[in-house]
Write a protein that binds this DNA or RNA. Structure first.
Lengths: 346, 346
DNA sequence: CTGAAAGCGCTTACAG
DNA sequence: CTGAAAGCGCTTACAG
């Protein structure tokens, strides 16, 4: 049987209320009493029961993170791990625990969220993905539970989100290639129904248009956030009659596939084809050649998501809102060897 | 204010006890009553308060996973993510929630564990690393809390662990190279104080000894579980007068460094040097060339760790023990291009 | 098969 | 500054 507040109270010759007050550093407690009670707690090895505290305080000091279903694991595990590291680091710093949840099916996912939030096991949630018409988002939104979306929601512009300005990021990536003298630039995209694919494609188009460069439909290939996509895209793109001299690739993992495909086809990077991609996962500087990539600050995204979620939990009821609904984490282009080839001027 | 058991009881015209019994599928409840109560629960949108339940049942249906400190993040994030995926999948299936915790310093780590276990917030813990003289292990062990170690403990042979037979795995890897005709085989190791480095080195030595092959000290290089280590090792090893024709490398990430180093030095894999490494992370089949690797079933390791932990939690008190203390997950060699070069017979 | 009562370990107005 | 009491939402012997 664990030591309770009563045991401490009895041994210290005070009431349970007093022990509780010492525990929460209540101001109106004499230094003497506090000292004595603390000594007894130490002596008895007292540890407050978190569940009991939660029950009465109606707050859990926990948040949950919802992993996407395996089927939708479009990004690399590296991406999620980095996100989670950021979330856990910030949450722990703020005194919050992080609960991980991953539903098998969409139904299970919703059931899990309902159990955790309705069951008052966590104070809020972070969603690591943004789908269209997500029932989980609807659930959280309708019940008024605090939550943060890593990504962007088109349906609910007022919910808390942390995101990259993907349009601008793609614009920057494309502009970099244009500055290097490239005029025929292709785009290897992800699943067309994902907001991130759309945004990055749009940024690419804008940069091309701003420089009055042609975008041919066959230069744009859609696929998954998987190496295979990049791999497969190469045999198509490199066989085009007037093929691009550079590519903007939607994700580093896809770029790995691109590199492998080019290697097999005996093309050289960056001489035959320049590449810039997104996310700057740790491996992108280790490939042969190292890949130029837009660093979107994954850890920072997670860290911020946790921060604004906890803020909104703690300000619940007060109505105060410190973070804007949409939080954009700055990105920056890291230039490496894969784009280090200037096209000779004609 | 959320709907409680009392609200349901009142509306259904029964006592709270009955509602509670319906909730836990108590056998001695009439079908009629159960039906009615369930209907009311549905109607009112009742969700049991998990904290209240935990408080009285003295069990949380949660486990925590302790991430290694950033400083000790020797393995790749990919490795941990895969482990966590396995843990979360099994735990959720068994009706358990998973709490993630990562201490900044060793002190914070211990404080977190103490808070979670002593504070009865979780029923048990999984440690993702095995250090020597780990105070966290000592703490859990002395308090008799259920926990599982992913790795091997030399100090406490009786604690629950899930592990790879690393000696055998390294033996197999080395034997594979020997079978291909290699006689001068080197070993790129990890930090010498880690059990996994020691075990794999031992397996290598045994395989070499069994085949009566010489092991020269300069063929063995120690480092970190980082790409840099492999990278740096190459300029040393490839400049040896009588250099190896094959290498056993302690980890796939290190192999990536090895490949990069060899590429820069203009050596070809597998023609100039064959490579076999460990862990078979998803990327090892995507490098140029794809790396032969010992698949240690990372997801499976996590899955099993969760399984035996939850088993031991549920059998606590009964004294029953279904899993042996040490659980070994089988490994297997995946041969790829990096070792697909047979040394010509002399 | 069902209910009244006690209790899990804590907090917090209300008094004093 | 401190204590007695009520209560957070649930479970579970004990009766009947």
């Amino acid at each position: 049987m664990a030591v309770t507040i009563k045991d401490v109270a009895k041994k210290a010759g005070v009431s349970p209320s007093t022990v509780s007050r010492v525990l929460s550093d209540h101001p109106r407690i004499s230094t003497e009493t506090a000292r004595k009670v603390k000594a007894v707690m130490e002596e008895l090895g007292y540890h407050p029961n978190i569940m009991a505290k939660s029950l009465v305080s109606r707050t859990t000091n926990s948040i949950c993170v919802l992993l996407p279903k395996p089927a939708e694991e479009l990004f690399s595990n590296l991406f999620f791990m980095e996100l989670i590291r950021g979330i856990v680091a910030q949450a722990n710093r703020a005194g919050y625990d992080v609960l991980l949840s991953s539903g098998g099916s969409e139904k299970e996912e919703l059931a899990a969220v309902s159990r955790l939030l309705n069951g008052r096991r966590v104070d809020g949630a972070i969603l690591l993905y943004s789908r269209k018409d997500d029932p989980v988002v609807d659930f959280l939104y309708q019940h008024g539970y605090p939550f943060t979306l890593i990504g962007r929601s088109e349906e609910h512009p007022d919910i808390l989100t942390v995101d990259t300005d993907n349009v601008q990021a793609a614009y920057d990536a494309t502009k970099h290639l244009i500055t290097m003298g490239h005029e025929r630039i292709g785009f290897v995209s992800g699943p067309p129904n994902l907001v991130v694919s759309q945004d990055r494609l749009l940024g690419y188009r804008r940069a091309m248009a701003d420089s009055e460069l042609e975008v041919r439909p066959e230069w744009i290939v859609e696929g998954e956030f998987l190496q295979e996509s990049g791999y497969r895209a190469m045999s198509f793109i490199m066989n085009l009659p007037n093929r691009p001299t550079a590519l903007v690739v939607v994700d580093d993992m896809v770029s790995f596939g691109v590199l492998r495909g080019l290697h097999e086809l005996k093309f050289k990077v960056p001489e035959d084809l320049c590449i810039v991609s997104f996310n700057n996962i740790p491996l992108s500087e280790l490939s042969t050649p190292p890949i130029s990539s837009i660093d979107i600050g994954i850890y920072h995204l997670g860290y911020t998501a946790s921060q604004i979620l906890i803020q909104s939990i703690q300000n619940e009821g007060t109505g105060a809102r410190f973070a804007p609904a949409r939080n954009v984490i700055p990105h920056r282009l890291i230039v490496r060897e894969s784009s280090a080839f200037a096209v000779p001027r004609k």
